[in-house]
């Protein structure tokens, strides 16, 4: 199935594919893409699901899809779903007793966000940490040890 699966973007901007319906015709189903291991195995293990969450296709490697446009669309979609600003520099990290206030530069631009004091950052097995702010937005520091010294100095009590 994955090999022959053809995906396109439909009029309403969703990924979609056509499958046979009950009457020998084709019907369009909209597809939603999910990564099974967004942090531990970011490449591969991709599940395509319909609106109701039923799995339409599953691959362990993206190149299992034979169609090139399909692969491209899936990658595009994943990039959007899993958009994750990478913190490149920390301008300030203020201890506000119950919250930390972060003023950072990310690859998507400057940002101010807050984390709970008791929220422990999540260390990934492949390296780097994910920081979740009070609204639930996530930020990624791929290599905390390679940040500039000022950023590391600010991070020291938050991370090691």
């Amino acid at each position: 199935m994955p090999k022959s699966l053809q995906i396109y973007r439909n009029k309403t901007g969703h990924l979609a594919t056509k499958i046979p319906n009950d009457h020998d015709g084709l019907k369009e189903i909209e597809l939603f893409v999910a990564k099974c291991f967004p942090w531990s195995q970011p490449d591969g293990f991709i599940s395509l699901r319909d609106k109701k969450g039923r799995e339409i296709a599953f691959v362990e490697r993206l190149d299992e899809f034979g169609d090139e446009q399909t692969r491209r669309l899936i990658e595009e979609e994943l990039q959007e779903r899993l958009f994750l600003p990478r913190i490149e520099k920390i301008d300030a990290l203020d201890d506000q007793i119950d919250l930390f206030r972060w003023k950072v530069k990310t690859d998507a631009g400057a940002r101010i966000f807050y984390t709970r004091r008791r929220e422990i950052p999540r260390e990934l097995s492949k390296g780097g940490v994910i920081i979740k702010d009070i609204a639930g937005d996530r930020y990624y520091i791929p290599e905390p040890e390679n940040l500039d010294s000022r950023s590391r100095e600010l991070l020291w009590m938050y991370l090691d």
Binding site: T12, E80, L82, F83
Partner: peptide, 18 residues
Amino acid sequence: EGLTLHRLNVVGRDDLGL
């Protein structure tokens, strides 16, 4: 909904599409 990024589509009536 996405992890951090969310998207709001304005879907048009009839044949207008996205």
